[in-house]
């Protein structure tokens, strides 16, 4: 095996171009993906190799081109739809929730929709309240969709490959802070769309997170290690399906947990995980589970306010200390 250093962005590009070379049904469409090279430059150069038929610029028409992706999937293609950012995907919500997520079921299992919808998500670039939100949970709420949030370079490639092999509609979230991250990855790594992964093994407490918050959480775990607190960090990777076994196994090991996410606190991913543990592993807990989540405010522009509106490393550290101090 041979290892290569690449960015998260390049890992996505590699998965896309590989799939396009191997399968003529695969094509990609979205705003400014061809001539402009993609808002986050993921598709830069691909139109040269594959032509503008298969790297297809669309007008500003999120509802129509996302719906067209669903239709093309019904018609036997394997489309990748790129939506610039999750806030704009709201224009396509009807297509995704009323069509992509339902047709398989409404037709009594006759049709399949092998579609991948990729979009950027998250805050950190001072883009204010119409460009910065983390709405993953809205999609994770919906049966019929798969929702993945690769947080590493290896997962960016591997999960996109797996999504392209999947016969169901897969929504893939790429946190804006990750595109420039680089890492060395092996050739031919395989990733599935259902397994969470332990990113750091520990004994004292489990930190459960995904996407852009993974790296802040790992950093918090480092700082806590210096205080002799041994954190286990579990990267969910997929929100739907959610890897119950991995979550419960880690809880059974550490008996404490903090869930970290950028999305708003109420009705969020953390709330779901807390409910799951309540149902399945209540007696394993040595302390109530805590959550570090987005503050319930549309993300503000000013840097200090934006930073304060999503969990940062010190917030995670403080939450862990709080849980450890509240042992029953």
């Amino acid at each position: 095996m041979c290892a290569k250093k690449m960015t998260y962005r390049d890992a996505l590009k590699e998965a896309i171009s590989e799939a396009m070379r191997n399968d003529s049904r695969v094509f990609l469409m979205g705003e400014d993906v061809a001539r402009y090279g993609g808002t986050y430059a993921v598709t830069k150069g691909l139109a040269k190799e594959f032509g503008e038929d298969r790297i297809r610029d669309t007008p500003l028409s999120e509802s129509a081109f996302t719906g067209a992706g669903i239709g093309a999937a019904l018609g036997g293609m394997r489309p990748i739809v790129e939506i610039m950012t999750v806030n704009f995907s709201l224009l396509a919500l009807d297509q995704i929730i009323n069509n992509a997520a339902t047709i398989r079921h409404m037709s009594g299992g006759q049709f399949r929709i092998p579609l991948v919808i990729r979009m950027a998500t998250g805050s950190g670039k001072q883009l204010a309240a119409q460009h910065s939100h983390s709405l993953e949970v809205m999609y994770a709420h919906v049966p019929g969709l798969k929702v993945i949030c690769p947080a590493t370079v290896e997962d960016a490639r591997g999960m996109l490959q797996a999504a392209l092999d999947d016969p169901n509609p897969v929504i893939m979230f790429e946190h804006v802070s990750l595109y420039n991250m680089s890492d060395e990855i092996e050739d031919n790594t395989k990733v599935d769309l259902k397994s969470a992964k332990i990113r750091r093994s520990g004994e004292d407490i489990t930190l459960i997170t995904f996407g852009g918050s993974l790296h802040k959480t790992l950093q918090a775990a480092e700082e806590l290690a210096a205080q002799n607190i041994d954190c286990e960090v579990l990267d969910l990777r997929s929100l739907r399906p959610l890897d119950h076994d991995a979550i419960l196994a880690s809880i059974r090991k550490t008996h404490r947990a903090v869930v970290i996410e950028e999305g708003w606190r109420s009705f969020g991913v953390a709330a779901e995980i807390m409910a799951l543990v309540m149902e399945k592993a209540f007696y394993e807990l040595d302390a109530p589970i805590a959550r570090a989540c987005g503050v319930e405010v549309p993300i503000p522009y000013a840097k200090h306010l934006e930073d304060a509106s999503v969990p940062q490393v010190p917030d995670i550290v403080a939450k862990v200390q709080e849980v450890l101090n509240s042992d029953v």
Binding site: Q126, L127, A128, A129, Q130, H131, P300, Y301, A302, K303, H304, L305
Partner: peptide, 16 residues
């Protein structure tokens, strides 16, 4: 600049 004296109190920025 993101200051509270801004016309949207620093919540909106250039686009808002």
């Amino acid at each position: 600049y993101g200051k509270v004296e801004g016309c949207s109190r620093g919540r909106g920025g250039s686009m808002h």
